[in-house]
């Protein structure tokens, strides 16, 4: 995999590891950004890993753009050979699929959708060949997901489905983005699921909502006092379908600041995963459920 570098104006270098998404491309991006961090290159001000690419912001008054480019290129060989393993976390996210709030929103923006006569999740189920929405929800919530990028807005995770490519869900984005998306909507676009951390514009299909905040600028929520944003690239997520009662109970627990998310430490090896996807995922589920 040869990285394509390009300057983004006089203050950024953009690096595309691969045009298409894969966990291999993500791990190369992650090891490159870790190497850049460790190198402590003068003038580098921000290091942003993304799904299959990354971006470095720099101060051209402190380092010449061409010199920084050379340094980055010199790291490429080591990064592509690095061992793709992670000490990370698996996090359970409760999801109320087909909730009334995203339903109300998607009905307001029907004219911007490919299939105005169905809902977002009905459309997604149909274009992915699932016979029913229930089967589709079982597929979406049945495997773990890999956080391959954090961004768009504060703390929003992009999630990549940990199954073989032929089983991966793919859904087009809205024809024209909505101007509104409820906070904590679970969305889908391209091959990525996401959680909208804040209310705002969005182009991803809307499947449901989680009661569990993932961003807190006031740092009051018990598990967000140290960091405002819950997610980091490399985290692993498991969706847990819940109904209205469990959703309401969780919202109440969040309001009283006694909600306790299920978060466990785990490790992940890309080689092990590629050798045995179902076995790797089963082990992750054992870690999550404390068995």
């Amino acid at each position: 995999m040869s990285i394509r570098f390009s300057f983004g104006g006089d203050e950024h270098i953009f690096a595309e590891v691969s045009e298409s998404m894969s966990l291999e491309a993500f791990f190369t991006s992650l090891s490159m950004t870790n190497a850049v961090k460790a190198a402590g290159i003068r003038g580098v001000t921000e290091i942003c890993p993304a799904n299959a690419s990354f971006q470095i912001k720099f101060d051209p008054d402190r380092i010449r753009p061409a010199d920084l480019l050379k340094e980055l290129q010199s790291m490429e060989g080591a990064a592509s050979k690095s061992d793709a393993t992670l000490k990370t976390r698996i996090i359970e996210i409760p999801v109320f699929y087909q909730d009334p709030w995203t339903h109300e929103t998607l009905m307001r923006f029907r004219e911007r959708h490919q299939d105005p006569s169905s809902t977002d999740i009905e459309y997604a189920a149909s274009v992915n060949g699932y016979g029913s929405v229930e089967d589709f929800i079982a597929a979406h919530s049945g495997s773990p997901w890999f956080v391959s990028m954090v961004g768009f807005v504060a703390g929003l995770p992009f999630l990549y489905q940990m199954v073989e490519r032929k089983r991966q869900i793919e859904v087009p984005k809205y024809l024209r983005p909505r101007t509104d998306t409820p906070k904590l909507t679970v969305g889908y676009g391209g091959c990525f699921s996401c959680i909208y951390s804040v209310r705002g514009a969005g182009g991803y299909q809307m499947f449901g909502i989680t009661p569990m905040p993932i961003y807190d600028p006031n740092q009051k929520i018990s598990y967000l006092t140290e960091e405002m944003c819950l997610f980091r690239p490399g985290d692993i997520v498991k969706w847990k379908p819940i109904g209205r009662d469990a959703y309401d109970a969780a919202v109440e627990a969040v309001e009283e600041n006694r909600f306790e998310p299920v978060i466990r430490d785990c490790s992940f090896s890309l080689a092990d995963f590629n050798r045995d996807i179902d076995g790797t995922n089963a082990k992750l589920m054992e870690v999550l459920h404390g068995r």
Binding site: S20, M21, C48, P172, K173, G190
Partner: peptide
């Protein structure tokens, strides 16, 4: 490419420079 979306202006979601 896989994961990019169907419109020719789509890419696999990446960082946006200022």
């Amino acid at each position: 490419p896989f994961g990019a979306g169907s419109n020719p202006s789509n890419i696999v979601d990446a960082c946006y420079p200022y």
